[in-house]
Design a protein around this nucleic acid. Structure first.
Length: 561
DNA sequence: CTTAGGG
DNA sequence: CCCTAAG
């Protein structure tokens, strides 16, 4: 059942939000599929600082960037460097001229033939050839007073002072360096044919914004309020948006105390269908009495989704459908050169759970309703920043939802959560780890495979030590209550595998250590399994003895005959 | 329904 | 992970 079928669309919502205020889909792909670009309501773009993007590219960054064409292809940093007011396209820096930085193609070639060509190619790819000679990228600032060096005119600097390493540092420290007074600068693309956005610009907060205003801004940005009253912290968070709390020292630790003790888990669920965004949107609005929600729709230009690429954009709409209130784009993971995607995200920090918020249950309900089983599911972006991603690819073949990586007891209690939320523990997440769920064909009841995580294995071992072997339902009830995808049979099977892996001799079992396991089990865990196997032999009633007796009897009788 | 065990 | 037999 598609919930979209049963829920009437909110008048004006879809049109306004997705058709009207979002960039033209085809254009959007070209326009937004670059890292660190945030599209604002007025059609301007501002940089997005996404630490995980940096992380995900760190390999490339640390590699020889000059020869890493892939990285050059993948990255387009509209980077405002604090001191010099540069932004960079690829590794070509562009300077600010009296608050209007220009990358004028007429100047490029004279400045530096090679880099000019690079920029030209870049913009060609980005804008699909829409930009050519005469197209100018304008760089402006909302807060001219806060723009250092803005009075001195600069031209494009042929020698690239912003190499990738320094970019990474700059970006990661960007928010802090930017401080409280400076707003993010705005990069405007003057070619109106490139960007078609509604004019719903909301100015960024100002220095003198009250605490209340900051809370509103925070709520607008993150979809929930915060108990933190520290103004600097609030400004910081709003400014940094996608940046992780965890690296920030000296900020109030309220969130830590609210951290649920559960293991952190994350997952991505692919959702097909063109109407997903609609369904989600309507469902969220209708099933919850919420002021605001985050929905999105993405465009899928080239038909293929790979697990290593996520480009995201989302918009917030309010109950009346009068959004978008804010927009964000973010990128996580790596993208292959020719595959660029946009997807919608609601991002928040992993330390900042949706505890007490309705958002999670909203998301989970929707996910439970719209996620069909047996779709390919890939776990990507193990970063904790992007907690929720909804996709609605144009092809309708794949979309994904990534619920929050962990849920508190209060918010996860809804049954739908367990059905739809696939967890994997953080301790095994990596950028490259992809979890594939087999497609369940019609009629086939094959359960989706789900990788056992080390935390799950540990829980299983604990459960066996507490309840004893064979008490699978007890173990499940005690330790896997929230994991509906693990049945007692699953636990039993896994224990059997663990015994096999730990070399415990079993009946009808060759003692060979098992071939390449997806998850190499630490020796310490295997040791525990071994010890428990001594205490609690696997087949509880040792049929082995009976079998041996029987055979010996038959043998003896046979011998006697 | 739960468990054991083979496929 | 599935299926089935056995308690």
């Amino acid at each position: 059942m598609d919930i979209g079928d049963n829920i009437a669309p909110i008048p004006g919502l879809m049109n306004k939000t997705f058709e009207g205020n979002l960039v033209n889909p085809v254009t959007a792909v070209k326009q937004l599929s670059y890292k660190f670009i945030q599209v604002k309501g007025d059609g301007s773009v501002i940089p997005v600082y996404e630490e995980d993007v940096i992380k995900s590219n760190s390999k490339n960054l640390s590699a020889d960037v000059q020869t890493d064409q892939t990285f050059v292809d993948d990255a387009m940093f509209f980077h405002m460097e604090e001191a010099d007011c540069f932004f960079a396209i690829g590794d070509v820096p562009c300077a600010i001229d009296n608050n209007v930085g220009k990358v004028d193609f007429n100047d490029l070639e004279t400045a530096n033939a090679h880099e000019g060509k690079q920029v030209q190619e870049y913009v060609d790819r980005t804008f699909g050839g829409a930009a050519d000679e005469g197209t100018t990228l304008l760089l402006t600032s909302d807060h001219q007073d806060n723009l250092p060096g803005s009075t001195s005119a600069r031209n494009l600097r042929p020698n690239s002072p912003l190499h990738y390493e320094s970019q990474r540092e700059d970006l990661s420290s960007k928010c802090e360096a930017q401080g409280l007074g400076n707003s993010l600068n705005t990069v405007k693309v003057s070619d109106s044919a490139v960007l078609e956005l509604a004019s719903d610009h909301k100015p960024m907060f100002r220095d003198d914004m009250s605490g209340r205003g900051l809370h509103d801004a925070f709520k607008s940005s993150f979809g929930q309020d915060t108990c933190v009253n520290d103004k600097e912290w609030l400004r910081h968070r709003i400014l940094c948006g996608l940046q992780n709390f965890t690296d920030k020292d000296g900020f109030p630790g309220h969130f830590e105390t609210e951290m649920p003790s559960q293991e952190s888990e994350d997952s991505m669920i692919l959702i097909p269908g063109n109407d997903l965004a609609k369904s989600v949107c309507c469902s969220l609005i209708n099933t919850h009495d919420t002021e605001k929600l985050v929905v999105g729709r993405s465009v899928h230009p080239e038909g293929q989704l790979t697990g290593d690429a996520v480009v995201a954009a989302f918009c917030e709409v309010d109950r009346a459908g009068s959004g978008p209130v804010t927009k964000n784009t973010a990128v996580c993971g790596k993208r292959s050169r020719h595959q660029r995607f946009i997807e919608e995200t609601l991002e928040t920090d992993d330390k900042c759970r949706w505890r007490g918020s309705e958002m999670l249950s909203m998301v989970n309900q929707v996910v439970a309703a719209v996620v069909p089983r047996g779709r390919r599911v890939q776990r990507v972006c193990p970063n904790k920043n992007i907690n929720f991603i909804m996709n609605d690819f144009g092809g309708g073949n794949k979309a994904r939802v990534r619920p929050v990586d962990s849920v508190s007891a209060e918010t996860s209690r809804s049954e739908s959560c367990d059905d739809a939320t696939y967890y994997a523990s953080l301790d095994e997440s990596s950028d490259d780890s992809i979890e594939t769920f087999n497609v369940r064909k019609n009629g086939s009841r094959r359960k989706n495979h789900r990788q056992w995580t080390l935390t799950e294995i540990t829980k299983l071992i604990d459960g066996v030590s507490k309840c004893g072997v064979g008490k699978w339902t007890d173990i499940k009830r005690l330790l896997f209550a929230n994991s509906t995808y693990r049945t007692s049979v699953d636990l039993k099977d896994k224990w059997r595998n663990l015994l096999r892996a730990s070399g415990v001799p079993m009946r009808s079992n060759k003692v060979k250590p098992q071939k390449n396991m997806n998850v190499p089990i630490p020796q310490s865990l295997l040791r525990r399994v071994k010890e428990l196997a001594n205490i609690h032999p696997y087949p509880r009633e040792r049929k082995l003895d009976a079998y041996e007796d029987e055979t010996s009897v038959s043998q003896s009788s046979k011998a006697s005959n």
